[in-house]
Each structure stands twice: as structure tokens, then as C-alpha cells.
Write a protein that binds this DNA or RNA. Structure first.
Length: 654
RNA sequence: GCUGAAAUAGCUCAGUCGGUAGAGCACUUCACUCGUAAUGAAGGGGUCGUGGGUUCGAGUCCCAUUUUCAGCUCCA
């Protein structure tokens, strides 16, 4: 057989060989660091046999799949360590994940001391350097094998495999685990690992099941890479919005106000106001009209919308139906309110599309463990909108919503940081959705084509649609890699029926419109959080709550400083003056730490010549300018929403 | 909601065996009137998240509760 290697060279062998043997044949050095193989694009175990012509790559920990294999084997070493130190622990599953691996055990919670003990035991296991060996058993024998080992979770896993499945196991010394692989050849090839944390996790990800104890860890090719990763973890904490946003006095929380109810402080509120004004104006340019509808409604409304039956747990209900004549609930969405705006008058086909926008505050009674900083809260404000359109306008309008979303993201400088998800229904879970399979497939096809036409890269996911239709969700990751929806655009051909919405067509007939539910920028709180992390607090000037700080050299120049500040404010620039009798070095230090983009130093020279000394966060010392020159410069930057990318010399030093 | 950890001055944190509550920064006042990342001195500031309990005595031990953090689950 002929084996084509990664570099294009061809090896010929007379008989079948394992991937590992081929690696050895290429070089002993390669075999030592080999983690797994890739045959015709498919990841394989080193023990797998190659018996026909194919292309083959030997993957090491420098390859993504190789590193995954290394981490998976490290998870097995952890499992062995747990069985040695805590023999009563029951094994469940232990996969590799994005930044490492985890393994779930049925056992009492692990403390940090336990993890340290386990790390030490892992070191011993790795030093022993047992070979990992694979063997297979038929299903019934596999069940019996795991029953004898008293591993009930493993038995359950095997029972869920098909009747005719041949079950593979990997052993290392005395330790055996049910596993599909691939794995390293020996535990001694694990060089750098760390157990990072432990926490509870439900068996099979279902909250009705028992809670297991999950140990998270990571492993790398080299100790230096591990150290680098751990340092990276420390560094990203510095841009964590929940920490930085509080330090910068953008928001705070108060015990007696409650969970998920952050208070936006003047600086955070200013930033949100800036975004809100911008988006409202932009939507108006794009043909939106604004509504302002109530924050609550009687239960009657939610009974029509279906929320009373399906979403009551998620709403804040005011009053008790058994006692009160009228029961109200704070709104968890704006849809029906805007529908009633539409329904207030009869509409012609000529009136459509109608684009309703509202800066809308919503309330959702999230479970107590779900709240987080500004990203998951119980009260939040979104730039919500509903487009009521004729079916023939749907595709164009959907495109318009995507274009608006893209414009918002690009202007904020985060357009490159998002992924687009086509959120589809789950054909295996039809009862969760309204409508026929044909309609679902068709509308999903429409959205798919729109994304393709706009050349937006996207991925598809089943089971993420709204119950009334598929949608595009624009997803972003926070500094810890956790994903949130930033923007959503939903295709709805269903709810108009439920609310008896119609328009009159050319023939004088009543016709159901289609609806697009969309946000142009999503949740303001969440977007603010995202911007804090993206820019580490150094926002583009147009978004900064304080754009310029005037720094008089001493109190003697206060009058001039006030004059400068006044003129800046007259030009719509957010300016303040530091009047304290501190040294200029101290004032500059504080201004920089507050991440203010521009500071204007004014003293005797400036006052006499009518100048300002400009120092910016972007380029350091920009020299002396007339105040008018500076105002022109910064106004242009703010008006065009420019994102200056230069990094201050001082920043590079630090 | 579940598992675990935590809560001490505005912030970051120390507080030993259960024995009168501490630092730095910040704040206030005074002096200095300063030229590009920390001027000096003095001063004020605490029911140790909250409520119970054990004890002669609780920041420290126990219980409950609230909030925060990590993770799980959830996010029509």
C-alpha cells in the first residue's frame, strides 16, 4: 500500500501497519511525540491499523487534534488518580474541551487541597509511565465487566450504545476506562498539566439527574505553554467587565436592591445614552417609527400571547389571581404591545412594511444562580423592533435588519468578533414548535440564502429557534470564552394569526402579514459589558463618558482652564477639569488610569498664546495646538465614530 | 434552581489558639502654586453582609438568610 505523508512524500509498505509503527518508521523522534493520526482527513488512534492506500499525518501536541488527544489522556490519568486517592468515587465521563479537559465523578465535593493531592498522584502515575492499551469487548461482556468494577454510570453508558456495538476500552496499568479514544501511547508523554477547578455538574447535563463533581484541568505540550496559559488567565481577569466596570464606576450592585439589578452610574449611563441616541437616530434614517409602550400589562395580554401558560415562571407577576380582581405582570418582551399599535388602525398593503422601534426595558425573573454582572440581569433594555411586512417583502426586510445589525457591530468596532448562527428548529422535538416541517425547512432556506447572498459566514444549529420561527443569532464570546447572544433577528410567519393581525390586499382581502422580531444592537447592558472587555476600558472616543480632561498646571491657570472646558462643552465634547492643587504629574497619572482619551495641559505658555498642550491615550504627546484645531480634530473623531488604533508609547512600555 | 467557595473602612486586603479592629490606596484639612505617570503633614472613617445560637467573652465556632464568585442547568 502507498501512504502519502503531509509533506507530499510517499511511503510504501508491504503489509498493514499501525499508525504508530508508521510514525516510528518515519522517525523515532516523531513517534515519541505522536498523539494521534489523521487518515484521509479523519482523526485516528495511533493503534489503528492502516491497510490501504491513503494520506496520513502524524499529529503531535502542536496540532489541534493532537493536543485534544493529549488532554483526553490527561483526563484518564486524573481518573486513575481519583480512583487511587478516593476509591469510592464512581467514574462517568471525561472529554477534552476548548482549553483543557474535565472529568465528572460521583463523589463528595473536591476541595482545592483534594485537587493538589490529585495533582501529586497524577505526577506519580505519569512517572510510572504505564502504556495505554486498547481492547474491545462485545456489548454484554462490556456491561458485565463494568458491573464487576462497580461502575454504574459506565454500565448505563454502554447500555445506551447499539445492541451490536463493539465497545472499546483503554487501560493504563491497573486502571481501565470505557473510551472511544484516541489516546497517547503512554502516560509518560504528559509533560505539563494543571487541575484548575472543581464544581458540581449534572449527570448527562440534565438537572433532574444526580449532581456529580466535575474536575476541570488543562494540559499542554510544554511547561512554558502551560505557564503562559495560566498567566493569560490571570491577565484576562483585568478586563473582566464585572471587575473593570465596577472599578471604572460604570455600574455597581447593592445587596438590598437585589440580584440581577445593576445600577448604572453616571459614566455607564452616559455611555448607554450615547449608544441609544445613535441607534434611535440610525433606525429613523432607515425608516423606523418609534413606539413607547407600557412596562406591564394585565394577565389577559399574556394569556393571548401564550406567556401566561408557558412563561409565567419567568415573569414578575404583580398580584394574586385568587385574591385580586386584576393581576399585572412586568413585560418580558415587547412583541404584543407593538402588535396592538399595529392593530389600532386598519392597514393597507400600501402601508407595509411598517418598522416599529422601541428602546424597550424588559423584566425576566431569571433563576437565582443565573445572574452575572451586566450580561445576565433581571431588568434590561434592548433596542427592540418589530417589522410588519407583506410576505413578498420578507426577504428584503430581513436583509435590511442584518445590514443594520452589521452596521451597529462595525461601528462599535466589534464586527470581527462575532459569529452568526442560523438557529433552526429541532425536527426531533416537533412539539416545541408551531408549524409544519415544510414551512420550517422553507423559511430556514430563505434565511440561509440571505446569509449566503450577503456573504456572511455562519453556522447552523438545531433546537435554537424560537417556537414561532427560525432566526439569526449574532453571538459573541466574553473574555472567559463564554458565549452570549448580542443580536437576534427572527422570522415569524405565525404570531400574526394568534393576534389576528391583517392588512387589506389589492383585492380587498384580509391577509396575514409576516413579522420580523429583531434587535439592532441587542441589550445595552450586555453590549456595555462586551465593550468593556473588548477595549479593556479604553473605549473609542465617541463612546467615552469623559472625552477630555483639562489639567491646569496650578490654580493660577484655573480661569483659562474653565474657559477651555466651556468651549469644549459648547462643541458637544464631554470635558471636565481637574481643579485640585496637585502636581501635573499626579493629575496626568490619574487621567491615564481613568482611561480618558485626551488631556489638555494648560499653564502659563498656553494661556499666553491661547493654546492647549494635547496629550492623548493613542499617540502620547501630540504637542501644542490652538483650541480650535483640537476641537476640529476631536469633533471629527467623534462625529465619524472613528476608532483610533494607535497605542500610546507609554502603554507599550507597560 | 443545583454544587462549591466567599463577604472585615469607599477600594484592595491582613487579622495567629475565641480575649479592646489593622495596613495601603481613596477621602477631609493645612502647607506647597508646581510643566507631563504618585509633594509633604495631620485627621476622620467599622454594629466585621444580616438575623439567631454556643460562650464569661465571637470578625473568629454553629445554624439560617442575603449578596458576590466559579461551574452546572436554564435563557419561550
Amino acid at each position: 500500500m502507498k501512504i502519502t505523508l503531509k509533506d507530499g512524500s510517499v511511503k510504501e509498505y508491504a503489509s498493514a501497519m499501525s499508525v504508530y509503527e508508521i510514525a516510528q518508521d518515519i522517525s523515532e523522534g516523531l513517534a515519541r511525540v505522536a498523539c494521534c493520526g489523521e487518515v484521509d482527513g479523519k482523526v485516528v488512534d495511533l493503534r489503528d491499523i492502516v491497510d490501504k492506500d491513503c494520506s496520513l499525518s502524524i499529529l503531535t501536541a502542536n496540532d489541534k487534534e493532537g493536543l485534544k488527544t493529549l488532554r483526553h489522556t490527561t483526563a484518564h490519568v486524573l481518573a486513575e488518580a481519583v480512583k487511587r486517592v478516593f476509591p469510592d468515587a464512581k467514574l462517568t465521563i471525561g472529554p477534552s474541551i476548548d482549553n483543557g479537559f474535565y472529568y465528572d465523578f460521583d463523589h463528595a465535593p473536591f476541595s482545592r487541597e483534594d485537587l493538589d493531592k490529585l495533582e501529586a498522584e497524577m505526577k506519580k502515575i505519569i512517572k510510572e509511565g504505564a502504556k495505554l492499551e486498547r481492547f474491545t469487548l462485545p456489548r454484554e461482556e462490556a456491561i458485565k465487566f463494568m458491573e464487576e468494577k462497580n461502575e454504574p454510570y459506565k454500565v448505563e453508558l454502554i447500555r445506551d450504545l447499539p445492541e451490536d456495538a463493539v465497545i472499546s476500552f483503554y487501560s493504563q496499568g491497573d486502571f481501565v476506562d470505557l473510551c472511544a479514544g484516541p489516546h497517547l501511547m503512554s502516560t509518560k508523554n504528559i509533560k505539563a498539566y494543571k487541575l484548575t477547578s472543581s464544581s458540581g455538574a449534572y449527570w448527562r447535563g440534565n438537572s433532574d439527574n444526580a449532581m456529580l463533581q466535575r474536575i476541570y484541568g488543562t494540559a499542554f505540550n510544554k511547561k512554558e505553554e502551560l505557564a503562559e496559559y495560566l498567566e493569560y488567565l490571570e491577565n484576562i481577569k483585568l478586563r473582566d467587565h464585572n471587575k473593570l466596570g465596577r472599578e471604572m464606576e460604570l455600574f455597581t450592585t447593592v445587596d438590598v436592591i437585589g440580584q440581577g439589578l445593576p445600577l448604572l452610574m453616571p459614566k455607564g449611563a452616559k455611555m448607554i445614552q450615547t449608544m441609544q441616541r445613535w441607534i434611535e437616530d440610525e433606525e429613523e434614517k432607515r425608516g423606523y417609527v418609534r413606539t413607547k409602550t407600557p412596562l406591564m400589562a394585565k394577565s389577559d395580554l399574556y394569556k393571548i400571547s401564550g406567556h401566561w401558560d408557558h412563561y409565567k415562571e419567568g415573569m414578575f407577576v404583580l398580584g394574586d389571581e385568587e385574591v385580586d380582581k386584576e393581576v399585572f405582570a412586568l413585560r418580558p418582551m415587547t412583541c404584543p404591545f407593538q402588535y396592538y399599535v399595529y392593530k389600532a388602525s386598519q392597514k393597507s398593503y400600501r402601508d407595509l412594511p411598517i418598522r416599529y422601534g422601541e428602546t424597550s426595558t424588559l423584566f425576566r425573573n431569571e433563576d437565582s444562580g443565573e445572574m452575572h454582572g451586566l450580561t445576565r440581569v433581571r431588568q434590561f433594555t434592548i433596542s427592540e423592533g418589530h417589522l410588519i411586512v407583506r410576505p413578498d417583502q420578507m426577504v428584503e426586510e430581513f436583509k435590511g435588519c442584518l445590514a443594520l445589525a452589521k452596521y451597529c457591530l462595525d461601528t462599535l468596532g466589534v464586527g470581527e468578533d462575532v459569529t452568526y448562527r442560523l438557529s433552526k428548529w429541532d425536527p426531533n422535538n416537533k412539539e416545541k414548535y408551531i408549524g409544519t416541517a415544510e414551512v420550517w425547512e422553507e423559511t430556514q432556506g430563505h434565511i440561509r440564502r440571505v446569509l449566503q447572498e450577503l456573504e456572511i459566514p455562519f453556522y447552523e444549529e438545531e433546537g435554537e429557534a424560537a417556537f414561532y420561527g427560525p432566526k439569526v443569532d449574532i453571538q459573541a464570546k466574553n473574555v472567559y470564552g463564554k458565549e452570549d447572544t448580542m443580536i437576534t433577528i427572527q422570522w415569524d410567519a405565525i404570531l400574526a394569526e394568534q393576534f389576528d393581525m391583517y392588512y387589506i390586499d389589492q383585492n380587498g382581502e384580509k391577509v396575514r402579514p409576516y413579522i420580523i422580531h429583531r434587535t439592532s444592537m441587542g441589550c445595552y447592558e450586555r453590549t456595555l459589558a462586551w465593550l468593556i472587555e473588548k477595549y479593556a476600558g479604553k473605549f473609542p472616543t465617541w463612546l467615552c463618558p469623559e472625552q477630555v480632561r483639562v489639567l491646569p498646571i496650578s490654580e493660577k491657570y484655573e480661569a483659562y482652564a474653565v474657559e477651555v472646558e466651556k468651549k469644549l462643552k459648547e462643541n458637544g465634547i464631554l470635558a471636565t477639569t481637574d481643579h485640585r492643587s496637585e502636581k501635573i504629574g499626579f493629575k496626568i497619572r490619574e487621567t491615564r488610569m481613568a482611561k480618558v482619551p485626551y488631556m489638555l495641559v494648560v499653564g502659563q505658555q498656553e494661556e499666553e498664546a491661547g493654546l492647549v498642550s494635547v496629550r492623548s491615550r493613542f499617540a502620547g504627546d501630540e504637542g501644542q495646538k490652538t483650541l480650535d484645531e483640537f476641537i476640529d480634530q476631536i469633533c471629527k473623531e467623534i462625529r465619524t465614530k472613528e476608532i483610533r488604533k494607535e497605542i500610546a508609547v507609554e502603554d507599550q512600555k507597560k
